[in-house]
Design a binder for these strands. Structure first.
Length: 587
RNA sequence: CGGGGUGUGGCGCAGCGGUAGCGCACCUGCUUUGGGAGCAGGGGGUCGGGAGUUCAAAUCUCCCCACCCCGACCA
């Protein structure tokens, strides 16, 4: 039994100055956690109970699938990470240190290498597979900016598992098992979630999905369909290409003088205001224009190349989406010097006819999926102050490829069903990812198959942020009075408040009730503090957020106590004799 | 790494050249007990650090450091 009279906790009346988001504030005010380092938190007894409940649920759902838990050191030597390339790839986010002999060490940011090497150590036959092993451990990342309490720390707890299979079919099976296990886990944690595709098909990547908790304070932007179940990370949104208009209907392209039209809007206004340029049956809009942006790509080997991106003029190029498409190359602005070096490009009037690998400029030209053959565009004519009208894709120009880099707008059609998409914010709480053979290849994890031939193992990696989940649960389950824990993660099932003086009958009655509750299998938090006013006790009960509150107060004279649901605020009087039975029904 | 902000008792804050304060929390006593009680008494702070200016620095100047927020970055 937890007794508030002796529990190591101090609730705060006022908000801590350094906590911004509601969940974080309440976790600190309720005495669940304390900040101990930038991005590092101490778990106080109540917080540690909640943490362990979350961990237990995650573990139970892993074990249910037959996955096996292992435990690694957090302090690791450089070599494995050197071999996989991540000693350098991880950059500044890796915590590096040296031992007394000057040997490079690191604090593990994640353990792919160690899992892979461990399996390589022990297994060498296809008969040993499939295998799934997992860990629940603290990870260390030197985040540039920790924020929002538990939502982004520099030391944090994560469950991650790895699957090892001989072939893609086996990988798919383990991927699906994790997907199902994660859905069960988040349901039990009382967390709403959205599963979004995390990697664009244009990358040709393997399957990867993120579990996002819908939180306004989250760091990820995603879209979801207002009608069907389509959802995707913004980076991964696929635009449904329109049906190609008939090419034969397209009038010939015509170059026109368009002075003083530095922006899309001024161009559209001029077109609509000039009788000779007006559209026969409607106004031109920005969506009729084709905007061409040139950037420089810096490739990992240090070389650079230019890339031109064509998007409809009513939307900008989304740099994050573009980066996701061109990764691992990095994007740099196209400078004046670059323009000077490319005389075929007229700044502000770049047109498709000067772009493309086969064009005089030789610059690779990729376009938004909306730019299908037969679509007609107003776009730059590669000549200052001039644009071209009715330039028709597939007839007047052909792009080198398609790219998903245009901004996604609220209300864009869903690629699956065509209904409007909505844009929302969330935070990643789980990620399932078909890694494939990258680590197995780099670290030499192979087994012999049935024919005695060497086969590279294929892997999957699956993570749940455990400490982050605690932060997200708090954020998702709170009101202006305090936290409201889902029952399975709550530090107790029932919070019993005894009012009255030390000599009043309420305290012994509450003690007796608490004992009976425990016998009935309920986890009890008893507020047995004496000399504390009822107001403080009620407020603390609401702040701490145990799902059910029982007040042993002035009704006791009539044999009654008050039973209150923390979430709804509903309360009613119950005969003392019936309380335990009613509480058990809540479980 | 850019921009902004803050460092004064456990927490939240005021003070901005002249004896370090307020509220909450804490300790003692008495009263009080259904929504963060009252009275009386009390303990606790090298004012983030260093250097300077000054008769005198929490306060002014310079240099550091730490933390928070926004952005960049980020499984």
């Amino acid at each position: 039994m937890l007794r508030l009279s002796t529990l190591f906790v101090r609730t705060l009346r006022e908000d801590p100055a350094d906590a911004e988001v509601a969940g974080h504030r309440l976790l600190v005010r309720g005495g669940y956690i304390r900040r101990a380092a930038p991005g590092g938190f101490t778990w106080l007894p109540l917080g540690w109970m909640v943490y362990r409940n979350v961990e237990r649920i995650v573990r139970e759902e892993m074990d249910r699938e037959g996955f096996q838990e292992v435990h690694f050191p957090a302090l690791l030597p450089r070599e494995p990470y050197e071999i996989s390339g991540r000693w350098t790839d991880y950059g500044d986010n890796l915590f590096r240190l040296q031992d007394r002999r000057g040997a490079d060490m690191l604090l593990a940011p994640t353990h792919e290498e160690m899992f892979t090497l461990l399996v390589k150590d022990l297994y060498s036959s296809y008969k040993d597979l499939p295998l799934v092993i997992y860990q629940i451990q603290n990870k260390f990342r030197d985040e540039a900016r920790p924020r929002a309490g538990l939502l982004r720390g520099r030391e944090f707890s994560m469950k991650d598992s790895y699957s090892f299979d001989i072939d893609d079919a086996g990988l798919q099976v383990n991927y699906d098992k994790h997907r199902a296990a994660y859905m069960r886990t988040f349901d039990r944690l009382g967390m709403p979630y959205v599963i979004v595709s995390a990697m664009s098909g244009a990358m040709g990547g393997s399957a990867s999905e993120e579990f996002l908790a819908p939180l306004a304070v989250g760091e990820d932007t995603y879209v979801r369909c207002t009608r069907c179940d389509y959802a995707a990370n913004t980076e991964a949104v696929q635009v449904a290409p329109p049906v190609s208009p008939a090419m034969a209907d397209a009038p010939p392209a015509k170059v026109v003088d368009t002075p003083d039209t530095p922006t899309i809007q001024t161009l559209v206004d001029l077109m609509n205001g000039r009788p000779d340029l007006r559209h026969p049956d409607r106004d031109w809009t920005a969506a009729d224009t084709l905007k061409n942006l040139v950037v420089t790509l810096r490739h990992p080997d240090g070389t650079t190349s230019a890339l031109a991106i064509g998007v409809p003029g009513d939307r900008e190029v989304d740099i994050k989406r573009l980066e996701a498409q061109v990764s691992p190359a990095e994007i740099e602005p196209f400078t004046e010097a670059d323009f000077a070096a490319n005389p075929h490009l007229v700044k502000g009037y770049i047109g498709p006819e000067s772009l493309g690998e086969a064009s005089p400029s030789g610059i690779r030209f990729v376009v938004d999926p909306r730019i299908v053959d037969g679509t007609r565009w107003i776009t730059g004519a590669n000549s200052a102050g001039r644009h071209v009208v009715d330039l028709t894709a597939g007839r007047d120009f052909t792009a080198d490829g398609v790219i998903e880099a245009a901004e996604v707008h609220h209300g864009d059609p869903c690629p699956v069903c065509g209904s409007p998409l909505e844009i929302a914010r969330g935070i990643e709480i789980g990620h399932i990812f078909q890694l494939g053979r990258r680590y197995a290849e780099a670290l030499g994890l192979t087994v012999l198959d049935q024919n005695g031939k060497t086969r590279v193992v294929t892997m999957g990696s699956y993570g749940i942020g455990v400490s982050r989940a605690v932060g997200a649960i708090a954020e998702l389950n709170c009101d202006d009075k305090g936290l409201v824990w889902p029952r399975e993660v709550a530090p107790a099932d029932v919070h019993i408040v005894a009012t009255g003086k030390a000599t009043d009958p309420q305290l012994p009655a509450a003690e007796a009730l608490a004992a009976r509750c425990e016998e009935a299998g309920l986890r009890v938090l008893l507020d047995d503090r004496v000399g504390v006013s009822p107001g403080i006790k009620f407020n603390d009960a609401e702040l701490l957020g145990v799902p059910t509150i029982v007040v042993v107060g002035r009704g006791l004279a009539d044999g009654m106590v008050e039973l209150k649901d923390r979430r709804s605020g509903d309360k009613h009087d119950v005969a003392l004799a019936d309380v335990v039975a009613q509480l058990r029904d809540l479980l």
